[in-house]
C-alpha cells in the first residue's frame, strides 16, 4: 500500500510505500523538495512539519533536532517519518542548509 505525500511549499506530490520513510521515498524519485542530509535522524536538515490531522509514526530522532514539544506539534525528520495515511508536509530546514562557505556561516541548532 502506498500513501501520497504532498510538499506544501511546492505542491509537489510523490508516493511513499507503507513502512518507507518520506525522505527515502522522495530521494528514490530523484526529487529534492525536502533537503537531504545524514538520513539517520541526526543532522536535522530534513526537518518538516506535518500539517493538519494526520496518521504517521516516527523512529528515534535526535533530541537536539526535534524536542518533545516539537514532536507534539507535528515536527519530525523526514528520514524517520513513516506515513500511515496521506500526509502534507512543510519543509522547515531548506534555507538553513544553503550556506555561504566563504562567510563560514552555519545553521544555529541546539
Amino acid at each position: 500500500m502506498a500513501f501520497t505525500i504532498t510538499v506544501a511549499d511546492t505542491g509537489e506530490r510523490f508516493p511513499c510505500a507503507e513502512g518507507q520513510n518520506v525522505l527515502a521515498a522522495m530521494v528514490r524519485l530523484g526529487r529534492r523538495d525536502i533537503p537531504v542530509g545524514c538520513r539517520g535522524g541526526g543532522c536535522g536538515i530534513c526537518r518538516v512539519q506535518v500539517l493538519g490531522a494526520a496518521r504517521y509514526r516516527t523512529l528515534k530522532m535526535s533530541r537536539a533536532q526535534v524536542s518533545a514539544a516539537d514532536e507534539a506539534r507535528g515536527i519530525a525528520l523526514a528520514c524517520k517519518l513513516l506515513p500511515e495515511a496521506d500526509l502534507t508536509v512543510k519543509a522547515l530546514g531548506l534555507l538553513e542548509c544553503r550556506l555561504n562557505p566563504v562567510a563560514g556561516g552555519a545553521p544555529h541548532r541546539g
Binding site: 545524514c38 538553513e96 550556506l99 552555519a106
Partner: peptide, 25 residues
C-alpha cells in the same frame, strides 16, 4: 585561499556539496 575551498575539500567537483558545511551531529 577561501576562494579555492571547493578544490581544497573535493578536488574533482571543485565545489562543496551542500552538506559539507551544514550537516553535522
Amino acid at each position: 585561499e577561501a576562494g579555492e575551498i571547493g578544490r581544497a575539500i573535493f578536488y574533482h567537483d571543485r565545489r562543496l556539496n551542500e552538506n559539507f558545511l551544514g550537516v553535522v551531529t
